[in-house]
Amino acid sequence: MVVKIDRKKCMYCGACVSVCPRVALNLKETWVDVNEKCIDCGICVKLCPVGAISLKERKK
């Protein structure tokens, strides 16, 4: 599972990229890409200044 980024809230500031332990996030010009390396750890969720990132519900 990967984190979910709300593009309507995202300010594309890149704060999340700097704390991602897997380098799974990538700031493009006006959005953030998340790749499959994401481990859903939630560190970026805490740092985001506007609350644009959330953990997807885990399904088993």
Binding site: C13, G14, A15, V17, S18, V19, C20, P21, V23, N26, L27, I43, K46, L47, C48, P49, V50
Partner: peptide, 26 residues
């Protein structure tokens, strides 16, 4: 390449920030 730097990490220099070492700004 700024706070969202990936290049150092791509080169093999770990610049990942710990959450406690970061401030969140608005």
């Amino acid at each position: 390449d700024g706070v969202d730097s990936r290049m150092a990490r791509s080169a093999g220099l770990d610049t990942t920030n710990k959450l406690v070492d970061m401030d969140s700004g608005f």
